[in-house]
Amino acid sequence: MSEILETEVSADHGRRLRAPEESTPVLDVDDLVVEHRNRTTGEVFRAVDGVSLRIDAGESVAVVGESGSGKTTLAMAATGLGVRGSGDIQLLGHSLASIGRRQLRELRPEVQVVFQDPHGSLDPRQSVRSGLRELRGLQRERTSWIDDDGLLDRVRLTPDMLDRYPHQLSGGQAQRVCIARALLMRPRLIVADEPTSGLDVSVQADVLKLLQETQASTGAALLMISHDLAVVRSVCDSVHVMFRGKVVESGPCETVFKNPTNEYTRELLDAMPGARWRARR
């Protein structure tokens, strides 16, 4: 069974990547629960409490909420990276609960994550070039579509960045390298976990634009985790508002932001800088 699946994946790699079936969602999460157990007291904390989420190809979805509301945990569990939860997670039509380790590894490059701290997501001992070379070695067929210079050009970095080490890059440059690394894999889903929180405002806009371009050019879906509603509004189609592990409101960005039905969403919107001013206008 596992062999059949694997050969299937490797055989029509290119085609599957370029033309995902329209009907299957990239990510379909149903009633996801993630619990953390405190080892000393034995108390159980529900970080994610019965969340359902669906992302179709090419769609960009945001999850917003305050710190500790379970946004990141949701993303990590939904993509099978580190956190385990109960509930049905379908990633590109494969159920995460039932596929084996090797298949999960085959599936992994389809989901790429851009993290909040760009310096932490690069191995400090690796130059940009050797990092990219390693990725190419890991996924030969998948990454052969572009060379290093072309890739850096796509994220608006000059080729001389290739020989730099992470500590020699500024935050914005490092985040662009991270986006380039994600782009190189031609993922079907990009998870951006607070991608601009560690950057200053002028760089934030660049990085967001770049993420949008990347998404548009590869046709990937985007799952954006953020507490910044302005960012979400400019990038995403639909939004889920999380509060204490639960989704309290979801819908298209415009609807949710214009007519919030939930009390918490309203509070969140009021907390947005310039919200009052915009409302009056």
Binding site: T79, L81, R108, P109, Q112, F115, L138
Partner: peptide, 9 residues
């Protein structure tokens, strides 16, 4: 970066 590498397979 460890998570990132895992995501790259």
């Amino acid at each position: 970066f460890v998570l990132g590498l895992r995501a790259a397979g």
